Amino acid sequence: MKSTILAAHQYGQPEVLEFAQYELPPLAAGMARIQVKASGINPIDARRMTGEFKHAALPQTFGTEYAGIIAEVDGSQNEWTVGDEVLGSGGAFTHATVIDVPLANLIRKPKNIDWPIAGTIAGAAQTAMTILDETGPAQSLLVHGGSGGVGSIVVQLAVEKGIEVVATASAANQDYIRKLGAIAVTYGEGLVERLKAVHPTPFDVSIDMIGSEEATQTSLAVVKVGGFMGSIAGRKLSSNKIQPVWVKRNTKNLQHVVDGIADGRFTWTVSREYAFKDAQQAYSDILEGHTKGKSVLVFE
């Protein structure tokens, strides 16, 4: 079976992206072959493309999450069958028409979740759950960049736990942040003063989705001594007090978020949909930032 894969043979802007035809090898044990219907695009994908974040040798492929239909499956098991609709984390890449993924990463796609939403859940959900697992007990949380994919679900998961959440976002996304259950604050000059006005006591925890110097300095100013300060941005920051947080795949955590979206407890927003053929435009828009919720590639 052939797959069309999004790849880049050099670092650069979206014009370095190209579509490559690839003959898939025989399906390995413990794997499922997926006809991809939708796959989320995350800022880290675009930053890998530019070379800001160098994760693998060239040529590189992209994508960490997907939703699709099982086209072939390891016949030694009886849990999954051809035709099952699934979502999850990928193996080597997910921005492709057909992918091979570990059976251990699969979650059944609920019937009431459409493909674009299903294809964007796994990466952000598991990152968000990792954040809350690693920060430990907290009464208050500051989220830098609360309107993006990970930020949106971190806010809701924290509110579910009874944590008071303050989240920064652009002026255009303030109402969205409030809808998610957080106190909304615009980032930019005077941020520390605005945060202290709505939350006078030091925060227990801060988490930075952006990797900006403003987020770093603000966390240092408003988080309590001994509090947890983390970042998922994957950027070198000016203070080693901000700890990097890397996603840990956990299907139990993923299932919790999927169930919450399916039953309406969690809001999940996909604000930008792109046909796979328009991947260059999708990556260009991701580089510009200011995303509300998630962006997704959709496949015919």
Rank of each mutant, 00 (worst) to 15 (best):
L287T: 06
P200C: 14
G289T: 08
I44N: 09
Q217V: 02
R33D: 08
V36S: 02
G151V: 13
G211H: 09
F203K: 07
D204M: 04
G188A: 12
G227Y: 06
Q156R: 02
V245T: 12
V16K: 01
K241Y: 04
F228R: 13
S219T: 07
V296G: 06
L132M: 07
V258W: 01
E193I: 05
S3H: 00
V296W: 03
G123C: 09
Y187F: 05
E79R: 15
L195N: 08
I242K: 06
P200Y: 11
A92P: 03
N78H: 11
V205H: 00
G40P: 09
N253W: 14
I207L: 06
D285F: 02
F203Q: 06
S206H: 07
T120E: 03
I121Y: 09
Q255P: 01
D259E: 14
G83W: 11
G30N: 10
Q35Y: 01
E160G: 06
E273G: 02
I113V: 14
D259Q: 12
T186E: 14
H95R: 11
V257F: 03
Y176Q: 07
I70T: 08
A197Y: 02
E164A: 14
K224G: 00
G91C: 08
A197Q: 14
A28V: 06
S152Y: 05
A128P: 06
T201E: 14
T81F: 05
G151Q: 07
K196Q: 15
D175W: 01
A7S: 14
E273N: 10
A104T: 14
D133Q: 04
L58A: 13
E15W: 03
Y187A: 01
T130H: 10
N78E: 11
L103G: 02
G90R: 05
N78L: 11
L27N: 08
Q156K: 04
M209V: 00
T61K: 13
F19T: 02
S212H: 13
P59I: 15
T127M: 09
K37W: 01
P102W: 06
I286Q: 13
Q13W: 01
H9V: 02
R265I: 09
H144W: 03
G12I: 12
K111M: 03
